[in-house]
Write a protein that binds this DNA or RNA. Structure first.
Lengths: 185, 185
DNA sequence: CCGGATGTGTCAGTGACTGTCAATCATTGC
DNA sequence: GCAATGATTGACAGTCACTGACACATCCGG
């Protein structure tokens, strides 16, 4: 049921804009009351941001599967592979493109998306800290946090750069991460 | 009048939380109607985020004053001097500390803050692109965008690290930016 | 003094979201 | 099959941030 609502909502968002689409309209589109919509989604934002949550989980898993002795910068690049991969698949690419178009129409939703990204970054940084500690290395929390932020800045810039051609995302990401690779790594 | 409202609002936010404070309460605290509150501020968020706007202008001016031939990474570090300086001033430090405490109590406001930061980053990146072009260099927009994002990631990590001791912010910032300095700069 | 400009408060409303409650549906046990 | 119980749903009233409209008050210049 939740995915049915999400699909109907996404269509409406694309057709008329995120802010211009009311929850009543979404609910009506799937034949339920507005009250019930909120039984399936915590908020209107969640319809869109749940996708990020799922992707974030994939990134976290990928990072956790990297070898502990690998340089963090490389591990972070590898953790972005799920993003690169989904943009190589035509169906997923179209969906992601649509999601970004929705987010782009609403500064408020975009901000909420950034808030989510920040939370993801925090959890990835925590993992790297724990990883370093588990390897008998003294983790520098400040630097690891900043590094995760840097890696996401590269991801973000590559997203922006390849908005028109999502297949180019992987190349842009690699270029950005090569150029911004920290000197001490 | 606007700053009087802002002061009253900030006190209420600190006392009972951002989300827990209603616009009616703020308006009553300064002896006006809720409708008039919205004549002074575009939204409740603006009370807090206007501070960031002003600081962002300072950062942009500082960056614009840097020499065009200076490495971008160094220019970005210098552009953060206004932040460092205000945290060295006890009165400003207390105010900034209070603002961060307010933002920390509301994920929604924090997200809005991140949205603002993103906009600031975009404008700084644009400036760097224009600067490079004006110096006869071919600007790499992707890399410059990512670099600005990296610099802000360092700023953000340093903020987090020195939340309890804001006087340490400058040192943390320098440490993070030294560690994350791109190899090719 | 009068008219125009400006500022204010009241009011009703929108839309996201919430708690409550009655009605309905589905399941289970006798 | 029926009654009891649990789950689901929609209706409803309300909160809160925010908005447009409008009447009223104040100020200033001719």
């Amino acid at each position: 049921m939740q995915s049915r609502i999400a699909r109907a909502a996404e269509e409406l968002f694309i057709a008329k804009g995120f802010e211009e689409t009311t929850v009543d309209e979404i609910a009506a589109a799937v034949g339920m009351s507005q009250r019930s919509f909120f039984r399936y989604f915590a908020s209107k934002d969640e319809v869109v941001l749940d996708n990020l949550e799922r992707l974030g989980e994939e990134l976290a898993e990928t990072l956790e599967a990297r070898p502990a002795e690998e340089p963090e910068w490389d591990s972070l690049r590898r953790s972005f592979d799920p993003v690169v991969e989904r943009l190589l698949d035509p169906a997923m690419r179209e969906h992601d493109k649509a999601l970004h178009r929705i987010v782009d129409t609403s500064p408020r939703l975009f901000a909420a998306y950034l808030g989510r990204l920040d939370r993801l970054q925090r959890s990835l940084a925590e993992h790297l800290v724990a990883r370093a500690a588990g390897s008998g290395r003294e983790p520098d929390e400040l630097v690891l946090r900043a590094m995760v932020g840097c890696a996401f800045a590269c991801l973000h810039a590559a997203m922006l750069q390849s908005a028109a051609e999502p297949e180019d995302f992987g190349r842009s990401l690699d270029r950005a991460m090569a150029a911004l690779r920290p000197a001490q790594v």
